[in-house]
Design a protein around this nucleic acid. Structure first.
Length: 489
RNA sequence: GGCCCCAUCGUCUAGAGGCCUAGGACGCCGGGUUUUCAUCCCGGAAACCGCGGGUUCGAAUCCCGCUGGGGUCACCA
């Protein structure tokens, strides 16, 4: 199946929970692979586990694709000529192929008691050897009632000693047949197992390249056997390395930012996440780091895919986010910040329910962002920094301690500063700079001390934005009020 | 434990026998710009290429062993 004109990849998650960064990266590579070859990217839902099914998971996945821009060409709800795309809606298909194998003697009904197998398994463990279940050892007569009886693949019918396949980035792989058990094709509830449904669907949906995570390498020999037995053409296989958390353990919900929607709420841009993920385990063959999705499609080459695991690193993601933040226009930037600001205020400030629905609020936000546009590196943290613009912070002795300012000196400066500033009506940036500079010069005080005093009075916090911008944004009345408040304390 | 996969700065990576006294990026440290914060700019430290053997005139690059890490051993995917 090396027909380049019909490249089709597929992302086939099970709806058992939220997609984490690792699986999203797998989806991304499937997408990039297909699109870089003008192929199709198919989304299939592997909902064959009735017990672990999580309703809402499918919708969440859809949301993720939409937000990231990794649009599947086919899938549940989306449709396509190879549907349905939910495995639970394809049960008859799997049954048909399973029965075909049974008729050929390549599979059999196996109603063996689970306890018997467990016992054999335990014994194998005691003997320090691996347990490989083969029906022959447990053969028994089956009555007429075959309902609720699982179907197993019959290994004894397979000819040869080994199975071999070629992984697109790992090379030739060989596994000894003796390590493969009579695995289950159809479960007793009539649903297919992953191993079986996967092969049937990839064939029926004409998938040319099976791109999935490393953890599936171990089950690939079973798939090979199935392709052979069913007489299906074998697609290309490519197993991606897994993504490890910062603790070097497999990425999980607990690894922090594994929930994409959480990242979204923290002001991370979809392009930044895509960019970061793409460069985690792949390189463009140049020193270029910043890419848009379409640039990634153009640059993508599976040959540069890494074969060893990569560790997720938030700081690097942050950097990519900054890069993509800088490329945004003002309107887009406002859209990023609107929900963040709203989230920040809503819980503590009832009156803010309507916050940002007022055009004045949007205009104010826009004024802030215009000043700060090229300085923001982390949206979520940034809100903390500019909080003082929205609400007057409490001023007390601890503020002075934080700034390492002497109380007596501080009061004298603020008092004199206040006199100078009050005399000014314009409150325009250039004028304020002249005023303060003039004051510094005539007073003979150090710039740092004066600026720090101003900063302490106006914001009560270290490190926000430039002083003059703060004064302008706050306005004359509020600025003077804060200076006065600092004096009273 | 069996089987399988992997191994270059803390992290993401370049490197497909001589271009490597190992390059880039994130982070970190130092300096400069900003008479304040941040941004930005410049510089620096950081991998004796996991270890040990080979092959070769020559190895991060090829081979073998070891060690370490990971995956997988379900009527889960």
């Amino acid at each position: 199946m090396s027909d380049n004109s019909k490249v089709r990849t597929r992302f086939a998650p099970s709806p058992t929970g939220y997609l984490h960064l690792g699986s999203i990266r797998t989806a991304l590579f499937c997408y990039l692979f297909a699109k870089s070859k003008s192929g199709q990217f198919v989304w299939r839902l592997e909902d064959t586990d009735q017990e672990r099914f999580v309703s809402g998971a499918e919708a969440q996945m859809r949301q993720v694709f939409d937000w990231l821009g990794i649009a599947p060409d086919e899938g549940p709800e989306i449709g396509g000529e190879f549907g349905p795309y939910r495995q639970s809606e394809r049960l008859k298909l799997y049954q048909r192929f399973a029965h075909e194998l049974v008729d050929q003697g390549l599979a059999y009904y196996s109603d063996l008691n689970q306890a018997v197998i467990e016992e054999a398994k335990l014994k194998a463990k005691q003997d320090k050897r691996s347990f490989v279940f083969r029906g022959e050892d447990f053969d028994r007569q089956l009555g007429d009632n075959r309902a609720n009886v699982p179907i197993r693949f019959r290994m004894s019918k397979v000819v040869g000693d080994t199975v071999t396949w070629k992984d697109s980035i790992r090379g030739e792989q060989t596994v000894n047949l003796s390590t493969i058990e009579d695995f289950i094709l159809i479960k007793s509830d009539g649903y297919p197992t992953y191993n079986f449904a996967n092969v049937i669907d990839d064939h029926l949906m004409q998938v040319s390249d099976v791109i999935r995570a490393e953890e599936f390498i171990a089950s690939t020999p079973k798939h090979q056997l199935l392709y052979q037995s069913l007489g299906f053409a074998v697609p290309n296989f490519l197993h991606l390395p897994i993504v490890l958390g910062e603790d070097k353990k497999k990425l999980s919900k607990r690894s922090g930012a594994s929930d994409l929607m959480l990242l979204k709420h923290q002001g991370y841009l979809p392009n930044a996440i895509v960019n970061y993920l793409a460069l985690l385990g792949w390189n463009p063959g140049s020193t270029q780091e910043v890419f848009s999705l379409s640039q990634l499609v153009a640059a993508f080459n599976p040959k540069s895919l890494q074969v060893s695991p990569a560790i997720y690193n938030q700081e690097r993601l942050d950097w990519f986010n900054t890069q993509h933040l800088r490329m945004l226009g003002m309107q887009e930037l406002v859209e990023v910040f609107k929900p963040l600001i709203k989230d920040y205020f809503d819980p503590e400030w009832e009156a803010s329910r309507n916050f940002l629905s007022n055009p004045d609020d949007i205009a104010y936000l826009e004024r802030i962002l215009t000043v700060e546009k090229d300085k923001i590196t982390n949206p979520k943290q940034y809100i903390d920094k500019i909080y003082f613009l929205y609400r007057r912070p409490k001023f007390d002795q601890t503020v002075l301690d934080r700034f390492d300012l002497d109380k007596a000196d501080f009061e004298v400066v603020v008092e004199r500063l206040l006199a100078v500033l009050e005399s000014n009506q314009d409150w325009e940036k250039g004028e304020l700079i002249n005023l303060v500079k003039g004051f510094i010069k005539s007073s003979g005080l150090s710039t740092k001390f004066v600026m720090m005093s101003l900063r302490a009075s106006l914001t009560s916090q270290l490190g926000a934005m430039g002083i003059y911008d703060i004064m302008v944004l706050l306005g004359r009345q509020e600025s003077l009020a804060r200076l006065n408040q600092a004096l009273e304390e």
